[in-house]
Design a binder for these strands. Structure first.
Lengths: 341, 341
DNA sequence: TTGTACGCGTTATCAC
DNA sequence: GTGATAACGCGTACAA
């Protein structure tokens, strides 16, 4: 406000060049003589010029904006993913407009409209509410992460391999029975691989096993009570046997661990435990807990790479859209801690 | 690309109105007859118009962008704060450009330049690297959260009151000695109140007490070893006495709790423990831990309110800048769990 | 209630 | 190597 912004016109007047030359100073400085570059550089500081990228967007159409729709920032997994995505600014220079969807479909669609109004060049979708088919219909570069992805490019953790690693580790621990506790995930979403991987390895190794699928509710308390109930069942049903338990995530693993330790004062030898995600709780637990770590940094980088590729393609005079969505997969890493041997 | 965007000009041509009327349809629809509103509405769908807010920015100067510089998203406190700030979109409509500073001053200054180039209307700063005096010199609406804030508007937790509540609770628990463990925080930053509050209450109640200030290092392992060392000291020095320990944050509290429980199989009666932040770890700990909860939602709302106030003032014909920075304070709430009685 | 004409700050095109 | 001019899409006095 007050004093208006210094513009190329002002600099042009001050230096006796044209606006075009000033523009060139920024976008193609080599096309000016060194002498003239100097002159303009001086004028810039003299007039205290501040660049205006909004005007540039209007003129050349490149916003360098990427939209992000993320379900929440409460789960460490999501905040870490956001963190890693944001850090790619250093590599690609794209700025991020972030919306937290809270799993409300109509709200998320509204956010997408807003993003489109700002002429974002692409979108990264972590929320699950909008089907990939609908996402694809927006007809702008999109990458989804760890969700249903039939019609969009995506980057996912190899959940199946993660489960295979976890289950194999439990096998090596000479358990009498293997147990996987999860919720009713759809076969459409990548996380389903955790169940499939568990089952396949159990069958392959001919291990006694049980798959427990349950609704955990939405509050911490609900979930805790649910796991408490499961714990009771396990204690009864498999008393005296060594139980190898593969939990769907570290939060659940920690709840079970706490129940065990509060009952026995320690982790008895007839329990082996492994979680999923390598979230902070797994290392901060009363007994540092084995887990399957997602390579969040790598996933984020791959996602941006995939997105940038699409966005660059679009800028060509004759863009060739992808025939088929590209799906990338990142292998998780087994993190062995004290709840397995 | 391909087919160019539909603009007001196209709609005007299609409806036989002028561009101005189309513009008014969006910004002041009541000034059109209902009939004409209908006509334009139909044209919008017929032509599949998509609004372009970038052009609007250039025309009216209002970006509705707010910049955020946050130190990291690793700590739950920060990701939660970001979450709450982002949710104010529903109230104020401001979009957020988010940068993670990672405590690198020059990097953060670069981010701020980028934000300014996009003509953000204001900034929320959570990072600590840039002195408030320097921030103020950017001469744009700013609110800082929980950091040195001499020259900027700010919202902070009442750390002093939090410490008072925590320390008082330990007093009521009939402890023989009170201990506060913290790092060497500068008296400039709000968190210093935790130390001051502890000391004041101890003196007021004439309680035996000890203040332990230590460097905790930057890795989880370093911190853990540090707390392990402190634990050993406490065990020796105050053997047989009931120790009321007020930790600087929940992560540290959890480490100490784990050390105690791993040694004794439970929390012995001669320990009382309270943390700070009400982060997930405090409720997920082996023994749900008492803590002082920051009202993150409230802080975020107050911050945006303060920022919006400044941004609105700027839009007036004759803006009256604040004489003095406004500092708001949000009282934390005591969360009593099982590590205190 | 509606239209005209110009401005916002930059880039792109073409000419010199 | 440099300049004039027309976009980019919308808002806003001012006029009618």
């Amino acid at each position: 406000m007050g004093k208006k912004n210094v513009t190329f016109a002002d600099i042009a007047r001050y230096t006796n060049f044209s606006k075009t030359t000033i523009s060139r100073y920024f976008n193609n400085p080599d096309s000016l003589t060194l002498e003239n570059q100097e002159k303009i550089a001086e004028a810039l500081v003299a007039l205290d010029y501040k660049e205006n990228k909004v005007a540039r967007i209007l003129a050349n159409g490149k916003t360098e904006f990427v939209g992000i729709i993320i379900p929440n920032l409460y789960l460490h997994y999501y905040s870490q993913m956001l963190n890693q995505i944001l850090s790619t600014y250093e590599t690609y220079g794209y700025k991020f407009l972030v919306f937290v969807g809270n799993s409300k479909k109509d709200v998320e669609k509204k956010y997408i409209q807003e993003l489109l109004a700002y002429k974002i060049e692409g979108m990264i979708i972590l929320s699950h509410t909008i089907p990939s088919e609908e996402l694809a219909s927006y007809n702008i570069p999109i990458v989804t992460i760890e969700r249903e992805d039939q019609h969009t490019c995506s980057v996912n953790t190899d959940n199946y391999m993660g489960a295979v690693q976890a289950t194999s580790l439990l096998c090596k621990n000479e358990c009498d029975v293997l147990i996987h506790i999860n919720s009713h995930v759809s076969p459409q979403v990548p996380a389903y691989g955790r169940i499939q991987g568990f089952l396949d390895i159990c069958k392959e190794r001919r291990m006694a096993h049980e798959l427990i699928l349950s609704e955990f509710g939405h509050s911490y308390q609900d979930t805790f009570e649910c796991i408490q109930e499961i714990f009771r069942t396990l204690e009864e049903k498999y008393a005296g046997k060594r139980k190898g338990v593969f939990m769907a995530n570290d939060t659940h693993a920690n709840m079970l661990l706490n129940l065990i330790v509060r009952k026995y004062g320690r982790l008895p030898d007839d329990y082996r435990l492994i979680g999923f995600d390598d979230s902070p709780i797994s290392s901060q637990a009363i007994i540092p807990t084995s887990t399957v770590g997602q390579q969040i940094d790598k996933i984020a980088r791959e996602a941006m790479e995939l997105l940038v590729m699409q966005m660059n393609e679009r800028k060509k005079r004759r863009p060739v859209p992808l025939k088929e969505p590209v799906h990338k997969v990142v292998t998780p890493v087994l993190v062995r801690r004290e709840t397995t041997s």
